[in-house]
Design a protein around this nucleic acid. Structure first.
Lengths: 241, 241
DNA sequence: CATCATTTTTGACATATATCAAACCCGTTT
DNA sequence: AAACGGGTTTGATATATGTCAAAAATGATG
């Protein structure tokens, strides 16, 4: 598991990494768009299980995932670790590090991935000049807060089945937003990682998958998931105890 | 529980609400400090169980707690609710609403409290002019993300005793930061609310308090807590299973 | 293709926490 | 002072999920 902190790639300016489309605001004037180019984000590539950053690293940049996916996790002194999120194309990671200028969690590639590095100083300077960008940045941070609180709800008040249903439905939605299939997808993470994220043991994750399958809600073939009965899965969520 | 959304008070400009000291950056130039006055935050008072805002309310302002304390919670369709935090003097609430311009959670006063209302538009405009303020705002948002992820760790991987120990130690620290006693304090929230926050039932909260007391770690008298053996309580946290 | 390491599934059993219920305590109202 | 009501404590029992262990499936490697 102790891999180099990052696979350093020759850095290339990232014109193809269309920021405006990916993750930054649309509706910018020509002038503003030109300004945005000053960011000249650099692309970096990562292989499965490479670290994008580690806990304790100095904070310099946010990262926009251009392709692939990552997990973020925090480590507790005693070795426990908690996966705090799975991020995919178009999502921004590193926001937690702004608070102390040190990365609080670590980000690990779940597959071959490319990220755009967005130097935070430049981003702040630009967002002083472009109010639309400023607002957008604030919304991204706020959205992360809302997301995290949603997970608190999940961890604090849902049973194993509900958690896993919520997880699958969330993935489904995010794939949909990217024009991918809502009902059929590949999990990029292990049962262990899902379990850490959802606050349950890997065996429970596996059993719950099997149970969903036997109910005809989904079809599981290791990491290939097909949602067979979407409304049924949604109903799982609303059946509180 | 259905109280008016807020107890509307005559609004008064808030010069005594020393923002710079409370929650906003120090090290501002004279000019910047003058600029900051443009915010002219208004003070509003709340009684116990008044709502500062409700889920669904339009977002206009952040709120700095001037005195007293609040809880924030999210509501799930099926009536479940999850307390997402307890906020005290000097802390900022409302950050989650930036993302959609609608408050995602609700904030309820736990005791008589006073807040400063910080209109977000003005805050954004000012932070474009004062980089120190801009960075400060970003840090506040990022700190909230880190805090939430800490709670994810707690909910996802700790046992009841560890959760409650972490909760007490966190309160203790925050009281310390305000010059109050680290070892003796009044809980402002019910067992039920603590339970919701920590993902456990109120009976389990109560039992765990009793257990800590029988171990000589704390002394509990309903809502009055005294930490008798601080290192012992800290040790609780590090004893993973 | 056989071997190996890793991940996943499944089973039997243990346990932490939830549930249900009753008693108790404390502050408030009559 | 007595009665009331909400919050808290404590007990007995139920249950969801964890733990430990083995087998099965999968993918990687020589």
């Amino acid at each position: 598991m102790q891999l180099p902190a990052s696979t350093y790639q020759p850095k290339t300016a990232c014109s193809s990494c269309n920021l405006a489309e990916l993750c930054l605001p649309t509706n910018l004037s020509e002038f503003e768009t030109r300004k945005l180019d000053e960011l000249s984000p650099l692309k970096r590539s990562f292989s499965r299980s490479d670290y994008l950053y580690r806990s304790g690293d100095k904070f310099r940049s946010l990262f926009a995932i251009h392709s692939g996916s990552f997990k973020t996790q925090i480590l507790h002194e005693d070795g426990r670790e908690q996966v705090t999120g799975f991020q995919m194309t178009g999502e921004i990671i590193g926001l937690d590090a702004i608070s102390t200028d040190i990365h609080a969690c670590e980000a690990v590639a779940l597959e071959s991935s490319v990220v755009c590095e967005l130097p935070f100083n430049k981003l702040e300077a630009l967002s002083r000049e472009i109010p639309t960008l400023q607002r957008h940045l604030h919304k991204i941070m706020s959205r992360e807060i809302v997301r995290d609180q949603g997970i608190m709800l999940l961890l604090g008040s849902m049973r194993a089945e509900e958690r896993l249903a919520a997880f699958l439905l969330n993935l489904s939605q995010r794939f949909a937003a990217r024009g991918l299939s809502t009902t059929q997808f590949e999990l990029r993470m292990s049962r262990q990682e899902i379990g850490s994220y959802l606050g349950m043991k890997l065996e429970t994750v596996s059993r719950t998958f099997s149970h969903f399958q036997s109910q005809g809600l989904i079809s599981v073939k290791v990491r290939t998931i097909e949602i067979v009965n979407l409304p049924g899965l949604q109903a799982c969520l609303n059946n509180s105890r």
